[in-house]
Amino acid sequence: MNSDKTGHDHDDIGCLQAIEAFYAYLDGELSDPGAIEDFEHHMSHCRSCFSRAEVERLLNERMQESGTSKAPDELRSRVRRLMDEF
């Protein structure tokens, strides 16, 4: 059994290994089925890591909502004129 700094006890994969795989999993970049299974198993019984993952998902959504920008029409026209000269 391992104990992390939040005072929670975990066995096997552990919070540290789960956090190691956190972003790869959430970003759809974890391809090894065994690693996915281990991660999901840990999430199923560790409230701390499950909660962290939910926060990360929420943060991802907020970043996509607020971070994307639309190119101004002036820039589109400028680039089109530029490409016409190629």
């Binding site: 939040t6 962290r52 607020s66």
Partner: peptide
């Protein structure tokens, strides 16, 4: 890296106040 973090941060990260995240402006995140 994780051991370098303050305990309060690790606790908060596992259970942050939903109200804070709900009210947080996109501009603050960016």
């Amino acid at each position: 890296l994780l051991n370098d973090q303050p305990d309060d941060f690790l606790v908060w990260w596992a259970n942050p106040e939903r109200q804070f995240f709900n009210n947080m402006l996109g501009s603050a995140i960016m």
